[in-house]
Amino acid sequence: MSQVWIAIIAVIAAPLIGGFLAGIDRRVTARLQGRYGPPIVQPFYDFFKLLGKSRIATSKTQFMWIISYLVFIITCLVFLVLKQDLLLLVFLLGFAGISFVLAGFSTKSPYSHFGANRELLQILSYEPILLLFALGVYTQLESFMISDIMASSEPLLASLWPIFIALVVVLTIKMRKSPFDIATSHGGHQELVKGIMTEISGPYYAMVILAEWYELVLLLGLVALFWANPLWIGILIALAVFILELFIDNINARMTGGWMVKFSWAIGLVLCVLNIFYWWIIKGVL
């Protein structure tokens, strides 16, 4: 039964951590831009305010896909904390992303479609890197199980550091940070309006924010797997990467979708493939 408790604790704790990190994000970003910034708990205030707003709708299926996005992200997190199959987790994460895209497509809104198409390009950019990450783990442990990663004494970072770098790129895309904030913008006054988020409002917008918090914790958790023994080093690495993302965000401008796909395939994918092929040659599979 302890597994059930682990899952429950993770599901409750993750959004708290995620919201807290989002608060830090806003604070650090403000400081980098010479502003004072909101209090750390501001994201929680925003979240509850959105939750209390009355629901308005442009389509029913949009609601369905937003719930699906949230539920699949939570499932991924449960997979992580229960140390399940990494490859399957990546597939689930991919579908969570697709659910969100479909939420964007479910309404006849030009801005929403605009954002959804770009979100698809984002999936195209990061999904193969995540799958290759799982394959890279297999070259080291001959297993896709996260439980085997946790049990191994060698940190993955030593052998898979190129994949680690690629994962930082993925994190930038997933956190919708510049230069990859192409599917939505943080201010509603740009040519994108609010991209894929344009038609999402009130409690359902709160759900999307909640899903993003879960997603952040999940991805940082995947980063932490690179130093799973002892885990606290991994967590420190994940937090360092998080802070690094904030700096990347603030020193870059948004690029185009096509550029993003080229960049992540040319840099991220090539790093992963070289890394994996290196180990294949060393281990004599090739």
Binding site: S59, I98, L102, K108, L120
Partner: peptide, 10 residues
Amino acid sequence: AKWLGRLLQV
């Protein structure tokens, strides 16, 4: 997803 998106737009 691209195709699904076209069907679902309402």
